[in-house]
């Protein structure tokens, strides 16, 4: 079955429903869930791409129908159970059995302004030169299922041109397994006529940021 989160280019989609309410938070519980995500440092093993992968593994119907921030709740719940931080019964009731994870560092309200102005750099020093340079023609691989990757299906087995080299960035495929591996990252430009032949996209250009291991020289 296709990856549920991998939505780029899915056919037969309806109109886009625009928000009438332009407030940043539509419901209090959404604000609480979003804020919880920001206000928790969490264990180091909860990497960004492990988080994303846990969301991608939510049951198909839940992923497609449950509200967005409700899925965030389920990601945290699943990561907590997986890490032995809490049981499903504790999460369902909201009542702790009294156990506290060792080494949890609490973010206080006084820490928030600084945390909110802190940015993260995903580049790491490179021990290899980039294999490609802008202007090179590259072909994307086909990556199977059963692991996390940031190569979308609609860009698998396609030919594009290297638009820019972006530095040596942490590889999500490794991050979702708790490993810190960096690879050269490139913005690749695909022609509309190549991605969507016969659909009248000849004047459009589609760009994505792809790691070296997703690419081969064309």
């Amino acid at each position: 079955m296709a990856r549920v989160h991998d939505m780029g280019g899915l056919p037969n989609q309806g109109r886009i429903v625009m928000d009438k309410d332009e407030h940043p938070f539509h419901a209090d519980w959404e604000a609480r869930m979003w804020g919880m995500n920001e206000a928790m440092w969490g264990p180091d093993s909860w990497t960004l791409d492990w988080w994303r992968y846990v969301r991608e593994l939510i049951q198909r119907d839940d992923y497609l129908t449950r509200p967005y921030f409700d899925q965030w709740m389920q990601v945290y719940a699943a990561m907590m159970v997986d890490s032995g931080v809490a049981t499903v019964a504790e999460i369902a009731s909201g009542k702790s059995d009294g156990s506290r994870p060792k080494g949890a560092v609490l973010m206080h309200a006084a820490d928030v302004a600084k945390a909110a102005a802190t940015t993260r750099d995903f580049r790491r020093p490179a021990d290899q030169k980039p294999a490609f340079t802008p202007g090179d023609k590259v072909h994307t691989k086909t990556l199977g299922e059963g692991f996390h990757t940031r190569l979308p299906s609609y860009l698998m087995n396609k030919t594009g041109i290297v638009h820019a080299h972006r530095g040596n960035h942490l590889l999500p495929d490794a991050g979702a397994k708790g490993a810190e591996v960096a690879q050269h990252l490139y913005t690749i430009t695909f022609a509309g006529a190549d991605l969507w032949p016969g659909e009248g996209r000849d004047k459009d250009r589609f760009n994505a940021d792809l790691w070296e291991s997703y690419l081969e020289r064309a």
């Binding site: 609480r32 869930m33 449950r66 509200p67 409700d70 945290y76 719940a77 009731s93 702790s96 156990s99």
Partner: peptide, 18 residues
Amino acid sequence: PALRVKALESLLVEKGMV
């Protein structure tokens, strides 16, 4: 979802994580 999120917050507070 509101109930789920409320329970999660209570639990994380009790666990000293949030």
